[in-house]
Design a protein around this nucleic acid. Structure first.
Lengths: 175, 175
DNA sequence: CTTAAATACTTTGTGTACAAACAATAATGT
DNA sequence: ACATTATTGTTTGTACACAAAGTATTTAAG
């Protein structure tokens, strides 16, 4: 077990445990998504997040800001700023509820529908094609890996109780 | 399985192939990374990206901006703005090369080293612990899945030649 | 040697993305 | 009735993150 005592290893160095590589892959993915979003914007006038918000509004008319935020995993503040832009372009409408004046219901306009009509997907066509060309089991496996990473990451405080359902693996300390 | 066949299915509809769920997981992960970065900032004064840049500079003294950008997968413009902040706080130094005055070499200061000394990891401790508690094969499998997703995403133009090695799956045109 | 092209970095402009502070309203408590 | 608390949404301030345009410098071409 002489793996980590080497010479100096300032911080994350050569033995750089796999999670560092994982982080690099994640960065690549994040960047790819962002670049796609930027390209969308030029081609269709809608960024990825804007597209996701629009779709939420279309699928659930009169939806509240809070709900949108939860559904697509963004903070309310972020959603507000996205809605500002969408409203300014006349793609959605805000309507304050009369029964509960804290709430704001969202509606898509005809112009918004028109844009969505021709709107592309929130992920690269290229990726989608490749993904769907995979075998079912591969898609499933990819998805469940991502979901697992996600659940390992969020809930920093909640302790891994639900993660152990798989079985109390007894550590198997083989080197 | 009568859960999603609802009424109209405007665009991305109920059969909403798995990639949509994948995107949701990715968003969760992206957000978890961002939230961790924000927390880091409050606790140590360094965000995740700042930490990554610092580590590049420590590991390769006199490194150029361009190189940093490539190594951590960011645009030069982004790195410049991160360096602005690090320099303003006296954590790094910019030094214009004398032989090629376009180039800027980066150096970490003592103060920067001090901060790094106590610097946390760029991912949640919690995640790292969980990840490293996994079996080796599981770590490997997670990593390779992420790398596969990454390579399916970037290089929008490059056609999937290396991806087909697995076998020319014949599309499975069910539905 | 002068112009053109390439390189390295910065600036500008836009769009996320968040926490924290705020405002308005609603629900609850006393 | 009045005060406290909770909920919903917005504002403010900061930090990414990029493309496109701009600056300075170097290299290449003619």
């Amino acid at each position: 077990m002489n793996k980590a005592e080497s010479v100096k290893l300032p911080f994350t160095q050569a033995n750089t445990n796999k999670y560092a590589e994982l982080l690099v892959s994640l960065r690549r993915v994040i960047r790819a998504i962002d670049l796609h979003s930027k390209r969308l914007e030029k081609e269709t006038g809608l960024t990825g997040p804007q597209l996701m918000v629009m779709q939420e509004v279309v699928q659930h008319d009169n939806i509240m800001v809070k709900l949108i935020a939860e559904n697509i995993n963004l903070s309310p503040a972020t959603v507000t700023s996205i809605l500002d832009r969408l409203e300014k372009r006349g793609l959605v409408l805000r309507e304050r509820s009369t029964t509960d004046k804290r709430k704001v219901g969202l509606h898509v306009t005809q112009q918004g529908l028109d844009i969505l009509e021709s709107a592309p997907k929130p992920l690269q066509e290229h990726f989608i094609n490749r993904f769907e060309a995979l075998e079912q089991w591969e898609q499933t496996q990819m998805l469940s890996t991502m979901q697992r990473i996600a659940s390992m990451m969020d809930a920093d405080d909640i302790d891994a109780s639900p993660l152990l359902e798989v079985g109390l693996i007894q550590k198997t300390a083989e080197s």
